[in-house]
Design a binder for these strands. Structure first.
Length: 117
DNA sequence: CAAATGACGGGGT
DNA sequence: AACCCCGCCATTT
């Protein structure tokens, strides 16, 4: 289970500044489909000092997953704001700041996924 | 071992 | 948009 969280964190580290992605997407990209909750658990147990950009990971639809009143929630909103991402409403605009992994786009380009077929 | 508990996701109201 | 419900999964009660 140790290497699993490492796989997850390595993906989170790839999310660029000013971009956000979802728990499900991280899980998927880490080779752990359907394991969104696991991603959330790994991030929740992250050391306070960690340099991992956990604040760039949100729930489906761009919703900020942390509950009202949780210090980390405000922390996340501030950090995102600092990167030019507005989350003041408790949700971010994925259409605008959503991160599409390079590999994903490359695959789409190579296999033409989505074109008729 | 059953039930509850989440930094989840998707659908329906 | 705000909830509710249920499926999913690893941990903790």
């Amino acid at each position: 289970m140790q290497d699993v969280s490492e796989a997850i964190l390595s993906v989170v580290e790839q999310v660029p500044r000013g971009k956000v992605t979802t728990y499900g997407a991280i899980a998927e990209r880490a080779g752990l489909p359907r394991r969104a909750r696991l991603v959330g658990r790994v991030l929740s147990s992250l050391p306070k000092r960690s340099a991992v950009p956990w604040h760039r990971v949100v729930a489906a639809g761009g919703r900020i997953a942390l509950p009202q009143g949780a210090p980390a929630r405000d922390q996340q909103i501030r950090r995102l704001r600092r990167e030019g991402v507005d989350a003041s409403s408790g949700r971010v605009d994925l259409g605008r700041h959503g991160w599409r992994s390079p590999a994903g786009d490359l695959d789409r380009w190579l296999w033409h996924v989505g074109d008729e077929n």
